[in-house]
């Protein structure tokens, strides 16, 4: 790519990030909630249970954590800017519109990274979580890359719904999906039916991949979860492209 194009990507990402951190009332909760939940359910009310509990929930709350910025940045952010005509003005300009989506993905990944680092630190300090460096790194990478399917899902939502309704719609998908994918409680604690039902959620597959790194997954081959995620991502992207052309 030419450096002028690179500069567009860089500036888009930079200002996207600035935009996000300048609304702390909106940003801070998404950073703090996963850590807070983890402290409550993973660390404080964990006495007497299994020693792997802390590591297990660290992984699933990290998944919960990275989904938030991805879904909200794309689902709510795009919906609002679409309604405000900002997206259209960019479309009319000579910028590659991919830079806009790239910037949102980077910004969401950066927020996701902060959340994951916070959770890892809590787990390591207070949950006695011990992984090899390779396992820590793999978990981190899987989580950051794992935000992409949710960015795609968010984009689909953002392009499909009105800005005012977006936050409600995103929450309506985000929270039930988190619970039913076993991000708040280990999936095995849910009735059997839900363990099969969870297969329709991308969050379930990402959680299983991250858990597989610490050998706490349900035991299905990782590649099955990977393929499910890729397939879901492609579906979301295809639907989002259709919505984009209509918007």
């Amino acid at each position: 790519m030419k450096s002028a194009t690179l500069r567009i990507y860089y500036l888009e990402a930079k200002f996207e990030f600035l935009k996000a951190i300048r609304v702390p009332a909106f940003t801070l909760p998404s950073l703090i909630f996963p850590a807070m939940f983890y402290i409550f359910f993973g660390l404080m009310f964990n006495s007497g249970s299994h020693p792997q509990h802390a590591a297990y929930l660290m992984a699933t709350y990290a998944v919960f954590g990275i989904i938030g910025p991805a879904l909200f940045s794309f689902g709510v952010g795009v919906a609002i800017e679409k309604d405000q005509g900002w997206l259209q003005l960019k479309q009319a300009s000579p910028m590659p519109i991919s830079a806009y989506f790239f910037a949102r993905a980077v910004s969401a990944a950066l927020f996701g990274l902060v959340i994951v680092m916070l959770l890892f630190t809590l787990g390591a300090l207070f949950g006695d979580v011990r992984f090899t460096h390779a396992e820590w790194l793999l978990s981190l990478l899987a989580l950051i890359l794992g935000s992409l399917p949710f960015a795609a899902l968010g984009l689909l939502l953002g392009l499909s719904v009105k800005g005012q309704a977006a936050a409600a719609v995103v929450n309506l998908i985000y929270l039930p999906m988190a619970f039913l994918s076993g991000l708040w409680l280990p999936i095995q604690m849910l009735p059997d039916f839900f363990q099969y039902f969870a297969w329709i959620f991308p969050a379930f597959h990402l959680a299983q991949i991250v858990l597989a790194i610490q050998e706490q997954s349900l035991g299905y081959p990782i590649v099955v979860h990977l393929l499910s995620l890729v397939a879901m991502t492609l579906l979301f992207v295809a639907l989002a492209m259709r919505a984009y052309r209509r918007a």
Partner: peptide
């Protein structure tokens, strides 16, 4: 172009918006 009813993100400054937009051309 100036499009009808456009609203720009509130948290950036005119300078920042212009810096970004100028990079497109």
């Amino acid at each position: 172009c100036v499009l009808q009813d456009t609203q720009l993100p509130d948290t950036l400054t005119p300078i920042e918006h212009l810096t970004l937009f100028s990079s497109y051309y």
